[in-house]
Simulated scan of single mutants.
Amino acid sequence: MTVSQSAVHAETFVRALYEDVAGPLYGYVVRLTGDRARAEEVVQETFVRAWRRAHKLNRGPEELRGWLFTTARNLVTDLWRSDAARPTTVSDERALGAAPAADDLEQAVQRWTVADALDRLSIEHRTVLVETYYEGRSVNEAAQRLGIPPGTVKSRTYYALRALRLVLEEMEVAR
């Protein structure tokens, strides 16, 4: 057999093997890795190794299948070992996303300030503002929840906002 005949034989051998075993092998490797992309890489490498050793793999179908599954398992084990040996790298985007941004801190301070100001309002004013602004309810929905007429919700909201502004001015937050 010439070199080109050997290559054609190896290619035909691996194609037939791939058609027969690729699906179950891929499922097996997905279960081992939990990652479809890695499983595809492992299956591909397994068949590359089968192609390289085609002249040595003169075995029956069950032995070949066992060899493929064992090779794939060994490749997955090598991946686990290499992952364990390497420290986990964190991309700049992930690190930046985890760190609080200046805007986040500013928003937190604003929330605390507004919460403090709301605590200084009367219960009627506070509840109407919470219902309409924080809960996002319409005047009619707020009226139903609070058990008061819609006109009362409107007027309380108006006066509650004025009172809130005064409290914030007293706190030297708003001018």
Rank of each mutant, 00 (worst) to 15 (best):
E93R: 15
W51V: 00
A101V: 04
V21A: 14
S122C: 13
A85P: 04
R111F: 05
G23M: 15
W112R: 11
A115V: 00
G66Q: 07
G60A: 10
V43S: 10
R81M: 08
E93V: 06
D83C: 05
L64C: 02
T89E: 09
E41Q: 05
A84H: 01
A98C: 05
A85F: 09
L25C: 05
H125N: 14
L25M: 10
A98Q: 05
A102N: 06
D119V: 01
A50T: 01
V42E: 03
T88S: 01
A54E: 07
R73C: 13
P61F: 07
H125R: 10
R111W: 07
A22W: 01
L96K: 09
I123N: 13
H125C: 06
S91T: 07
V21R: 13
L25D: 05
G27F: 15
Q107W: 08
Y26S: 12
R38W: 03
A72W: 00
R120V: 10
T77A: 11
R59L: 09
D35E: 00
Y26N: 09
V76S: 03
V30L: 02
A102S: 15
A85V: 01
L25E: 09
E93L: 11
T71P: 12
A102W: 03
A22N: 03
T33E: 01
W67N: 14
R94I: 11
T88V: 05
E106G: 01
G23K: 14
R81I: 04
D92G: 14
D116K: 07
K56H: 12
W51F: 05
G34V: 10
V114S: 12
D78V: 10
Q110C: 06
S91A: 03
Q110W: 15
A50E: 01
T113V: 08
A54K: 14
P24S: 05
A84R: 04
K56R: 15
R111E: 10
A54I: 07
A99F: 03
T71E: 07
E93Y: 06
L17Q: 09
Q107L: 12
F47M: 03
D78E: 12
P61T: 01
T46K: 08
D20T: 13
R53H: 08
T70W: 05
A95M: 05
G66V: 06
V14E: 08
R111H: 08
R36A: 13
L17M: 08
V48F: 08
T33R: 01
G97K: 02
Q107G: 07
A16N: 15
R53Y: 12
Q107T: 07
G97D: 04
D92S: 14
P61W: 06
L79T: 11
L64T: 04
T71G: 15
T89N: 02
V114I: 11
S122Q: 10
P87Y: 01
N74V: 12
A108L: 13
R15D: 12
L75Q: 11
A50C: 02
L121D: 04
T33P: 00
V114F: 11
A98D: 12
Q107Y: 09
